[in-house]
């Protein structure tokens, strides 16, 4: 039989298997119990074994139901991908020691995500995903502390860089319009409780 590899399916199967194995490893902490009196580990063990099995099946079938290759990664894609992970982790570890604010709650996570995605955004292959994710991460970081308007404005302006046809005028317009609209809906009408302006 001629092999006709489906790269997408093979990658999917491997992801399923990897998550299942990680889950099984973590599940070692939980007692299984008996079929009658199931412990906290019983269901996870069942689920992850089934998932691992299905992952293996997907990999097996992927050998013949192709071809459907993965999209090609350029050198820059690989570089920024790895660079993004390294930079993100580094920022996550270092940020709290630079400014105490970054050490509060989940702020370090936000910093790490934003830095990592900005590094990834350098390569064209990641640009859209990375900029959108970075804008949402910055929103998480800023919304509570820098306030409603600054948090949202950052989200809107950064996310606009994902779309090359945006003009300066357009960005200013859409930012102003959305700030006004969301103020009306969420603050004036729904009255969600957030700070409007930075808190010090």
């Amino acid at each position: 039989m001629k092999l006709n590899v489906n790269g997408k399916d093979m990658a999917s199967g491997l992801i399923l298997m990897a998550i299942a194995l990680a889950g099984l490893y973590l599940n070692l902490d939980h007692s299984l119990g008996t079929a009658r009196r199931m412990g906290p580990g019983y269901m996870p063990a069942m689920v992850f074994w089934i998932q691992a099995g299905l992952g293996a099946l997907v990999v097996f079938f992927s050998l013949m139901n192709g071809p459907d290759p993965l999209e090609r990664w350029t050198g820059l894609d690989i570089g920024t991908f790895l660079g993004g992970i390294v930079a993100g982790l580094a920022a996550f570890w270092i940020a709290p020691s630079i400014w105490g604010f970054f050490g509060q709650t989940y702020n370090a996570v936000g910093v790490g995500l934003a830095v990592g995605f900005f590094v990834m955004a350098i390569s064209a292959g990641w640009k859209m995903l990375a900029i959108i994710c970075a804008s949402v991460s910055l929103f998480g970081l800023l919304f509570e502390h820098a306030g409603f308007f600054i948090g949202l404005a950052t989200l809107i302006i950064v996310s606009c860089f994902a779309e090359p046809t945006h003009t300066k005028k357009g960005i200013v317009g859409v930012t102003a319009f959305l700030l006004a609209l969301s103020w009306w809906v969420f603050i004036y009408e729904l009255d969600i409780r957030v700070n409007l302006w930075p808190q010090f």
């Binding site: 809906v185 009408e189 729904l190 009255d191 409780r193 957030v194 700070n195």
Partner: peptide, 10 residues
């Protein structure tokens, strides 16, 4: 259509 969620402002 979006009324009545107490108005005291934070």
């Amino acid at each position: 259509a979006l009324p009545a969620l107490a108005r005291a402002r934070a």
